[in-house]
């Protein structure tokens, strides 16, 4: 269970407050107008940006001051999810051991995971030789191996076509169903939210609202969301 207790975030004149709970194994979309602070919210949860005040808890443990890499979560950025000088297998292997001192069993696990995400045989290739969809899959494969209970998606599939994006979201859903991970996904597309996330956090006008059933929210949006959705 992810808890944000009276969290406030400031960045110059920008302010965002968040006070909500996300249930375990929930899949939650984060939507809101551009610049409302969706990515910043994820950044704070992931530990890249300090909250001004308040606490962040995972399963009751305070993680507010823990280093990003030691938090119980994986994050996929909009871009730069892979190291271009490392092979696909190495990029994925980092999820098991950041020093890449992999045992034979680890190598096997990497190959199995790559097969699982449809990337079998690509172990030795470099990211530059892969398509955008394949690169996304590599990053997902790594998250799969890291097996952290919380996954943050900061629009990693925004650049993909609708069919490919749907496919990737299905893959995420499949994986997190297996592992029981909680997912927070920033999105611009209401149809993605409907498809993927039963609940949605609306970020607007300086507040990240508690999760609300997605369908209800989208069918009957408050004015600020309606404006954003063009309704």
């Amino acid at each position: 269970m992810l808890e944000l207790q009276d969290v406030t975030i400031t960045q110059g004149a920008f302010r965002l407050s968040a006070d909500f709970v996300v249930a375990k194994s929930a899949r939650v979309a984060v939507i809101g107008p551009s610049g409302a602070g969706k990515s910043t919210l994820l950044s704070v949860i992931a530990g890249f940006y300090p909250a001004e005040s308040g606490r962040i808890l995972w399963d009751g443990t305070d993680i507010t001051h823990i280093q990003p890499g030691k938090r119980p979560l994986s994050i996929l950025f909009q871009d730069q999810n892979l190291f271009p000088h490392l092979t696909i297998a190495q990029n994925v292997g980092l999820g098991l051991r950041p020093d890449l001192r992999l045992s034979p069993a680890d190598h096997e696990a990497v190959s199995r995971a790559l097969t699982r995400t449809g990337l079998q045989g690509m172990e030795a290739r470099k990211p530059a030789t892969l398509s955008g969809g394949q690169q996304g899959r590599v990053a997902l494969t790594r998250a799969l191996l890291r097996a952290r209970p919380l996954m943050l998606l900061d629009e990693p599939f925004a650049a993909l076509g609708p069919a490919l994006k749907a496919e990737m979201l299905d893959l995420v859903a499949e994986i997190t169903d297996e592992t029981g991970a909680t997912v927070l996904m920033v999105s611009h597309a209401p149809e993605d939210a409907r498809r993927f996330a039963p609940e949605t956090i609306l970020v607007a006008e300086g507040t990240a609202h508690p999760p609300h059933p997605t369908t209800a929210l989208l069918d009957n949006p408050p004015p600020v969301l309606a404006a954003y959705l063009g309704q």
């Binding site: 890249f48 890499g69 994986s74 999810n81 950041p98 020093d99």
Partner: peptide, 12 residues
């Protein structure tokens, strides 16, 4: 950020 998120630190 990527290195941090993967806890890639120190000598590694």
């Amino acid at each position: 950020r990527l290195a941090q998120s993967l806890n890639l630190t120190g000598l590694a």
